[in-house]
Amino acid sequence: MTHVSLKDLTKVYPGSKVPSLDRLSLEIPTGELTALLGPSGCGKTTTMKMIAGLLTPTSGDVTFDDRSILREKPEHRGVVMVFQNYLLFPYMSVADNIGFGLKMRKVDKSEIDRRVGEMLDLVKLPDLGKRRPSELSGGQQQRVALARALIVQPKVLLLDEPLSNLDAHLRFEMRDLIRSLQQEMGITTIFVTHDQEEAVVLADKVALILDGRLCQYDHADVFYKRPANEAVARFFGGQNFIPGQSSGTAFDSALGQLALPQNAITGKGTLTFRPENVKIGPSQTNGLTAILEDRIYLGTQTRLRLRVGETMVEAIANPDEVGDFEVGGPVPIHLPPQALWVLQ
């Protein structure tokens, strides 16, 4: 049970002027599963390596339960990091890989064998202990890497892109496994990913890092409904950004006047709404008439490029709803007020 906090954590690599990570502060409560999300090269892996003790921060602090751990050697921190490409030791059997951490702690051979057996059952690979890592599939290697980390009962578990190397059907299986093991053992877990879907699917809370700085730290759904700024919204697939003026209850822009939900900010701002929240069909509130410029059929949904006056609007709709509309023709749409969000 460990509360992890990062305080103004900064890393500037030697020879570089721009910090790879710029004053990151984050509170990760005991037993939670938190995602560090951001594009590649944004400083996520750097952050993990600093928590694990594999890199020394330029400044700032990492504390576990309010105690700084920066002076602790990596092997004494109780932090285990699982790398993206698993890095199973190729010359060892699966069982020896899993037992590695215990062997380093000079645990009895018989005790190691017993606990390795338990871990193999836990990750559902009971008969593969004698195999070599190269004989396993990607998903199986991932499980072995997880078992190898969990057997030492870490205080904090770090996962680097845990789902990214897996096929679509394996991802959900692995997600369930990671979540159930993590909840069962109550290990504070941080994982990094560049894939917003992976973050949303797996994490309790998501910390979005862009250009080495923390942009937003919240529950996953908030990133879709109330992004902190345009960059956040764009990262999560937002495509509609319309500048204008907010009065608190309504928004004036090239789209005309649109009703806003409660508690919207006032003053100059940018209106944003998600493509999937653009509703097809006429409505009294926030109804508009658009021209269909282009449509892309994607199987379970259809993407629409719409033009309202001179403003382009991206929408995603159910294919059945939009079957009749022709390119170049008019389409009635509306924007429900609760789907609108004004950015500063």
Binding site: K49, P74, E75, V79, V80, L87, G101, M104, V152
Partner: peptide, 16 residues
């Protein structure tokens, strides 16, 4: 250096 990093994080000291 990643293999050694894994080992360190699993509890191996420098020598191990």
């Amino acid at each position: 250096e990643d293999y050694e990093s894994v080992a360190r994080s699993l509890g191996a000291n420098r020598w191990q």
